[in-house]
């Protein structure tokens, strides 16, 4: 098997980026985002991006970096509340935005990656989300049709990988990453740790290596926290 391992994010992106491309980017808020690949996309200068991501990062971090440089033309997201630059560009008409219910977004990506072009869901029936979509009744209930999503490139963040591209995620940093890994024409995974062949228990692999074409190991992960909530220890 040719090596999937690239020396860094810029090398992994070489030859796969082009203006006007569609990119899926994993993460929920700033948790489990591909920090290194986003930074390298910024440096690559690729523009006119349609970004499919649950959120839009914050000012100065995550996809916020690509908004600042106007590299993103359109976003498909479920919630974007944490980003002033996003709001400014959107209100100025500089950025197109398509809201999807979070479960519909997740399922569209899962379906796209599984070769399923469309599916029916109750989510959004009777709301703005249903406008212009096919309605169909099953067992007396109304559903709307949603389409599967694929991307030219999926960038995902995992905790560990082996050289075959098998991935393991950590805690709630998993979120959208596993589905996105399946839905990229090219999927690049960045991980905190590369382990040797056989070191991942095959029963515990979250993303099988067939979905991952390129792999990089990142260092010095920033892992910014949006809401640092704590409790106090009882004083004895």
């Amino acid at each position: 098997m040719p090596s999937k391992l690239y020396p860094d994010a810029a090398a992994a992106l070489a030859g796969v980026t082009f203006d006007g491309m569609t990119i899926m980017s994993g993460g929920f808020g700033l948790c489990g985002i591909p920090e290194k690949l986003i930074a390298a996309l910024k440096a690559s200068g690729v523009t006119g991006i349609t970004a499919i991501s649950n959120n839009a990062g914050v000012d100065g971090f995550g996809l916020g970096l690509l908004l600042e440089t106007r590299q993103i033309a359109r976003m498909i997201s479920s919630y974007v509340g944490e980003n002033k630059e996003f709001e400014r560009q959107y209100l100025a008409g500089e950025l197109q935005l398509e809201f999807n219910p979070q479960g519909t977004l997740a399922e569209r990506i899962r379906a796209g990656g599984a070769g399923i072009p469309g599916f029916y869901t109750k989510t959004g029936v009777g709301t703005l989300v249903a406008e212009g979509k096919e309605h169909k009744d099953f067992g007396g209930e109304t559903y709307i049709m949603e389409t599967g999503l694929v991307a030219d490139l999926a960038i995902v963040k995992a905790w560990k990988a082996d050289p075959y591209g098998n991935l393991v995620y950590r805690k709630t940093a998993r979120n959208f990453n596993p589905m996105m890994a399946t839905a990229g024409k090219v999927t690049i995974a960045e991980v905190e740790e590369l382990v040797g062949p056989g070191e991942l228990d095959p029963d515990h692999i979250h993303t099988p290596g067939i979905f991952v074409q390129r792999l990089i190991v990142g260092t010095d992960y920033e892992k910014r926290i949006e809401q640092r909530t704590v409790r106090q220890r009882e004083q004895i």
Binding site: G32, T172, A173, I225, Q227
Partner: peptide, 23 residues
């Protein structure tokens, strides 16, 4: 930082906890 809730607040896990994808 890898353990947050849907409000993006830091939380903890319990004996019964499980993690899974958004799908």
């Amino acid at each position: 930082a890898d353990l947050i809730n849907a409000g993006k607040q830091t939380i903890t896990q319990l004996d019964r906890s499980s993690y899974f994808s958004s799908a």
